[in-house]
């Protein structure tokens, strides 16, 4: 429960939501967009965030679509993760999603909430990074669609008042061979030591990572090394590790040395599976 009083709104259209945001902001009411709300409630309870008004986007129909539209799969930001898993239109996304939190929590956690959360794992972004998806966002200047590579750099680079409506993924990607592995320190529920998702596109492997650095990422440099089929597998992995684009996490889930050890083994495992060795 939030100790401070807040206002709650549930607009039915994108335009109403963005207009409400700027109207509330003009009144200094500290508006935030709200979907599943799990992070807002847990951080708010500890007074780590102080929203003054919640704009719930769950009544906006564009945020709730999960369907193919010609050659693209549209995935709405307000969909609960378990809804996405049950429909299973995008098996890699389902598999990655199932590693997040626990089943009941995922009934509440939405795709957009995971993508835009403060928690640094945000594993739901990995499939979209791998598939060069296109992100549709709304803001003060209306609706626009941008390649994920253009709008995601460690986090979604959203301007004030913008929110994600849905993500478009080309149909040709959604049924490709994939691996999604979540390694935990122990047991099968909880924060990851490391999550790696990979797909095989025209005999090239793509990799995206969460839990390795303080942000999820896909690295072309690492992929280039991991795809050098002329080199031995250990050499490919060793070279790829040299291109990790940030500090390796060193925390209660595992030391940086242990994470690298697990990463090395996980990359070996994935390559062997996807290359069919």
């Amino acid at each position: 429960m939030l100790s401070a009083d807040i206002e709650y709104y549930r607009p039915a259209t994108i335009k109403a939501a963005t207009e409400l945001f700027f109207s509330l902001k003009g009144e200094n009411k500290r508006p935030v967009y709200y979907s599943g709300g799990t992070e807002i409630l847990t951080l708010g309870r500890l007074d780590l965030i102080q929203p003054g008004a919640l704009i719930d986007i769950k009544a906006i129909k564009e945020c709730l679509v999960f369907e193919f539209d010609r050659n693209n799969l549209l995935t709405g930001a307000a969909l609960p993760l378990t809804y996405i898993e049950d429909a299973n239109l995008f098996p890699l996304l389902s598999a990655t999603s199932m590693g997040i939190a626990d089943h009941t929590a995922r009934n509440k956690i939405t795709l957009g909430g995971n993508l835009c959360g403060q928690i640094f794992y945000r594993e739901a972004v990995l499939p979209f990074l791998l598939c060069d998806s296109v992100v549709t966002i709304a803001g003060q200047n209306g609706v626009e669609s941008l390649p994920i590579g253009q709008i995601f750099n460690q986090t979604f680079q959203l301007a004030e008042g913008q929110f994600i409506i849905q993500i478009m993924t080309e149909r040709r990607y959604v049924d490709l061979p994939f691996v999604s592995i979540k390694k935990r320190q122990q047991w099968e529920t909880g924060y990851p030591l490391l999550t790696v998702a990979a797909i095989k596109v025209e005999n090239q492997l793509r990799f995206a990572f969460s839990g390795l650095c303080p942000f999820p990422f896909r690295s072309k440099e690492m992929e280039d090394e991991l795809n050098k089929a002329g080199l031995s597998l250990p050499e490919r992995v060793k070279r790829a590790i040299g291109h990790i684009p940030g500090p390796v996490l060193h925390d209660v889930e595992g030391s940086s040395e242990y994470r690298l050890f697990v990463l090395e083994n996980t990359l070996n495992e994935i390559i062997i599976e996807l290359e069919g060795r």
Partner: peptide
């Protein structure tokens, strides 16, 4: 836990089970 972890507060809303500590009553 009041943090969405333990599940002691689970209730059903329509046909879905939720942890009621991470759901607003207004929802």
């Amino acid at each position: 836990c009041l943090n969405g972890d333990c599940g002691a507060c689970s209730v059903m809303v329509d046909h879905t089970v939720y942890k009621s500590c991470i759901m607003l009553a207004v929802e």
